[in-house]
Design a protein around this nucleic acid. Structure first.
Length: 535
RNA sequence: GCCCUCAUCGUCUAGAGGCCUAGGACGCCACCCUUUCAAGGUGGAGAUCAGGGGUUCGAAUCCCCUUGGGGGCACCA
């Protein structure tokens, strides 16, 4: 990617009003170059759904770009789709981005807030007057015009085009109406007109930050497009441009699915008399089948990943490496180093399939790097959730979890996995499958004998010295004197006290269980195998 | 139908004409460690760089074509 050829910008330095100094970048600001305050990027999600993984990735790349060059990153809510926008989604998006560690210099920091920054408000429904002024200006200059077409007419047009195997396109019915014709159309439809932007003939091109030169003939844009609905609310293509212009956005970094929108936006910037920002189109995140990642085929809500126990460090690291790599062989990289190394010129052009297995591995890497107390804090909500839905009987205290960490931390692919791993510790009435207690090479009678013997040995053990390395020798000795394989004995004990065949190391487990519970479970398991149900 | 766009192991990627008989990671397989499961270590299989033409002394890297994939074409964003 040649960064030297850039469209329009950095926009008219002299014409911008004095800028407020942006909030200081995070401590991580290991800038590899001088801060560039002329660079302003944004993420502008629509609160019509929970934070989508694609939105998070786009936000992350904008954030990385801004922080790397010392520019400004802002957050704007595009809530003009009133029917689908909700305060709940707004909260989910903002909280989700914050959770990932993505911060912005301008825009609402919490749902409902809108006054943080020099260009407030940052919520489009609060900026209606601005769009109104802009559309009036375009209509006055005849760069846009009122369109009286009804949904039925437009639908019929579209159907006819489809039948004729033609690309969908506005037919221009209202493009050149005389004043009296407009009056007549208005009377005929009886509804307020929408406003359409005139698409001028010619070719529109730009030097994309990541895919070089792109040129599109405007005849392929689908004709004049609506910028304001009949009810007066503005549409996306219009609001993005008006706001990106007003908020002095210098670089628009967004998903590849916007490539076809870019010529429309460039036309609008020109009509509005504003310098055109630089555009950069990121490759898409793909479903396993190679199509654009969708809710239908993949898990797309960031909050669902959080609920499963993915941690921000893992998710951010993974997302950053989807379509970008530092060019070194480091796979596990903290956010501050990603910022320092981020280079938009190294962003790929091709889409990347979402690989959950790789995400889990990376998440495990990050969990292993967590400080013990931090890990306990992060584990607590997942333990509480297990209490809430009855998977475990009680919430263990921090000082119960702490000692477990050495054997648990390296076994967790996700935080939620802690319940599967050691949940048996906090289950009051553990159910043990009799068939599972009997080791492969053993029969129920041997197992019963072994469990009873093990119980007696452990019962004879002094309570004060209930330590892993003191519990092991006598049991090994038991196996040896009876001619049993230690592994078989251990497995029988393991299943008896945990109900599972895969657990942390046995003696650490017995210590965690405590003397009483260990003995009680050995007894009840012995009873279970000792009295097999007759088939 | 039209427009745009992309193309290195199954997956994420390194690669900016000779350092490439293509490197790393995930996953997979084997071994080591080992009381199970993980983690960790070692090794292995796995890509004729989509195919075909050029350019060049030399191409995964540059150009063209083909094929395949993807995105888009609303009074959604």
């Amino acid at each position: 990617m040649n960064g030297q050829v850039r469209a329009g910008l950095p926009a008219r330095p002299g014409t911008h009003p004095p800028r407020h100094s942006p909030a200081l970048p995070p401590a991580a600001a290991t800038l590899s170059s001088m801060p560039d305050s002329t660079i302003r990027v944004r993420i502008a999600p629509s609160p019509t759904g929970p934070l989508h993984i694609g939105t998070a990735r786009t936000a992350l790349f904008n954030f990385l770009y801004a922080r790397h060059v010392g520019g400004t990153f802002l957050f704007r809510l595009e809530d003009t789709d009133v029917a689908r926008s909700t305060a709940e989604f707004e909260r989910d998006i903002i909280d989700g981005l914050h959770w990932l560690g993505i911060t912005w210099d301008e825009g609402p920091d919490t749902a409902g807030d809108m006054d943080h920054g020099p260009f407030a408000p940052y919520r489009q429904m609060a900026r209606l007057a601005i769009y109104k002024e802009a559309s009036d200006r375009l209509v006055a200059a005849d760069l846009a015009y009122p369109c009286f077409c009804t949904p039925e007419e437009l639908d019929a047009d579209r159907k006819a085009q489809e039948a004729a195997r033609q690309p969908p396109k506005y037919v221009g019915r209202c493009a050149n109406l005389a004043p009296d014709e407009r009056t007549a159309r208005l009377a005929g439809t009886g509804r307020p007109p929408a406003t359409r932007f005139r698409v001028r003939p010619g070719v529109v091109g730009w030097n994309d930050m990541i895919r070089d030169r792109i040129e599109i003939d405007t005849t392929n844009l689908g004709g004049d497009f609506v910028i304001v609905r009949g009810d007066g609310t503005p549409l996306y293509h219009f609001t993005v441009v008006v706001d990106d212009a007003a908020m002095e956005i210098s670089h628009v970094i967004r998903g590849e699915d916007h490539v076809g929108n870019t010529p429309k936006h460039i036309l609008l910037f020109e009509a509005l008399g504003h310098a055109v920002p630089v555009f950069g189109h990121l490759p898409l995140i793909l479903n396993p089948d190679g199509t654009k990642m969708s809710k239908r085929k993949s898990q797309t809500a960031i909050d669902d990943y959080r609920a499963e126990g993915f941690i921000r460090e893992g998710l951010v690291n993974y997302l950053a490496y989807l379509g970008w790599s530092p060019g070194t062989e480091e796979d596990v990289l903290p956010l501050d180093e990603i910022i320092a190394k981020f280079d938009i010129d190294k962003v790929h052009k091709g889409g990347a399939k979402f690989d959950r297995g790789r995400l889990e591995w990376l998440n495990g890497q990050w969990i292993r790097r967590l400080e013990p107390n931090d890990l306990i804090d992060r584990l607590r909500p997942y333990l509480q959730a297990a209490v809430d839905d009855g998977r475990i009987s009680r919430l263990p205290a921090d000082d119960e979890v702490g000692p477990l960490l050495p054997v648990v931390q390296e076994r967790l692919p996700t935080l939620a996995a802690v319940v599967d791993l050691v949940g048996f510790l906090w289950i009051d009435d553990l159910v043990v499958d009799p068939a599972l207690v009997v080791p492969k090479r053993w029969d129920p009678a041997t197992t019963h004998e072994a469990l009873v013997a093990a119980r007696d040995i452990l019962a004879a053990h002094d309570t004060v010295t209930w330590e892993a390395d003191e519990l092991e020798p006598p049991l090994r000795e038991l196996a040896e004197t009876r001619g049993w394989k230690a592994g078989d004995l251990f497995m029988a004990i393991r299943v008896a006290v945990t109900g599972r065949t895969a657990t942390p190391p046995l003696f650490d487990t017995l210590v965690a269980l405590g003397r009483e519970l260990t003995l009680a479970r050995l007894e009840s398991a012995a009873a279970v195998v000792g009295a097999p149900t007759v088939r």
